[in-house]
Amino acid sequence: MSALRLGRGLIERVWLVAVAVAAWEIVTRRVGETYFPPPSTIVKALREQWFSGPASALFLSDKALDDFSASLAHLFVGWAAAGVAGVALGAAIGRSRVLHDLLDPVLQFLRAVPPPTLVPFFIMVFHIGATMQIVTIAFGVVWPVLLNTSDGVRGVDALQLETARVFGVGRFRRLFQVILPAAAPKIFAGLRVALSFALILMVISELVGSTEGIGSELIGAQRAFELPRMWAGIVMLGILGFLFNALFMLLERRLLRWHAGAKRLAG
């Protein structure tokens, strides 16, 4: 009975996706469309490109390991650097009213600069390569983390701070066991936005100035007019975006279980 209901629920969810994919397949095959190759061709290209490796390596080919490791290393180093710097600076700014009032206009301006604008500048300064890509990503995604942290820290309940003071919780512990946990929901929201921005900036930096990574593979395929290969790159980036978001949500749900619980019961 429940299996039946489960199956029905699944069908209700995926039928439109199935119809869309099938329509795409049929129409493009009929017309012999070149720009939008049928999904089966894209999947085949995807497998040839990156997933022809042995089962022991999760079917990842050597090329996949090269491309992915380069792209993902830049993405995570940049994101993590921005995360650490954003939380540290954001906490300082959130705790100090003087610092906040001094820096707020500057920060609002820096956040408003569309990060790709600085790519040519970073290319001039750091030349094409890993450093340039990491700096581009870190500089582009630090703002949502920083501003959300400062917002969250400023919003910590005064009574929670007073409680910590009354019970002699020292400065260091107050920061790590009271202020940052209280601001954590906002910090995590900032980190999640930053992660999706980091993926965009990773692609941009690879499109503009790189010889390795998924983005450069994408532009290479386009220049060679190998459209299935190019589509494989697009789909791959979509899969990565989906996976990052899912993994991050999983982590967030685990770490902020108390927040969801407290909110549910309050409401």
């Binding site: 009574l159 929670q160 066991q177 946990p181 209280a182 108390w258 927040h259 407290a262 309050a266």
Partner: peptide, 11 residues
Amino acid sequence: FQDYSRSLFPW
């Protein structure tokens, strides 16, 4: 404090 829900740390 009066407001226990705020003075106890929910995390």
